[in-house]
Design a protein around this nucleic acid. Sequence first.
DNA 1: ATGGCTTGAGTGTCAAGA
Length: 258
Amino acid sequence: MFRIATWNVNSLRVRLPVVLDWLARQQPDVLALQETKLADADFPVDAIQAAGYQVCFSGQKTYNGVAVLSRIAAGDILNGLPDYPDPQRRLLAVSVGDYRLVNVYIPNGSATGSDKYHYKLEWLDHLIHFLAAERSRHPNLILLGDFNIAPEDRDVYDPLAWQDAILCSPPERAAFSRLLESGLVDAFRLFDQPEKSYSWWDYRQQAFRRKMGLRIDHILIDQALAHTCTHCSIDTEPRKLERPSDHAPVILELATGS
DNA sequence: ATGGCTTGAGTGTCAAGA
């Protein structure tokens, strides 16, 4: 059994105690983090190693930042899209055991039609091209992170209100579909899931309590791995704590056959 | 309601998130 999780923590500086508690409770083999918002010099390496995890990270001050925590050391580390120079730290690809993990913090896009929206779509194009090459080099690829895309209306609490809006617009959903068409599977949808399953809720208006969320954090697995996948769920417990991240972790379990 | 929180920057108040 191999357990892999992803979590947008919205500042690892603020969330470190919650993350360490969660690691102790869940004991995943791998945890991919997004929005660490820390310069590499400020990354809490010691605290994470003391919790029994190796870590690699690609961060910057204030914004973005991705990290991968793993029980066994990661190898073949790649930071950023090779053919898309970008000062924003949004991608970290690593090999852990038999798996190739691509941890992404896909741009938010701000509003459809904005400069940030075009950046998001361009970033997705380059990601799709990168993954084609990456999958030819590495079997057992897993793409996980904060996609900032709600792929279907059932992933949105009020699809009509969000129709054509950021996170739901047809070009964003088309990019998500292209990821699936390239041979990846949305692990969450391999299983029956509760109604109103979301991974992000706005901090305002008591959105979490009112179940006003979107499912924008995902784990996509190579379709060759689908038959090994035994579980995938969203853990909403950390969203109930004091000072939570606005995102909940997503957890995946794969049978390893030994 | 270009609103409503939260974080980081930096010490007044804005940018950015989604």
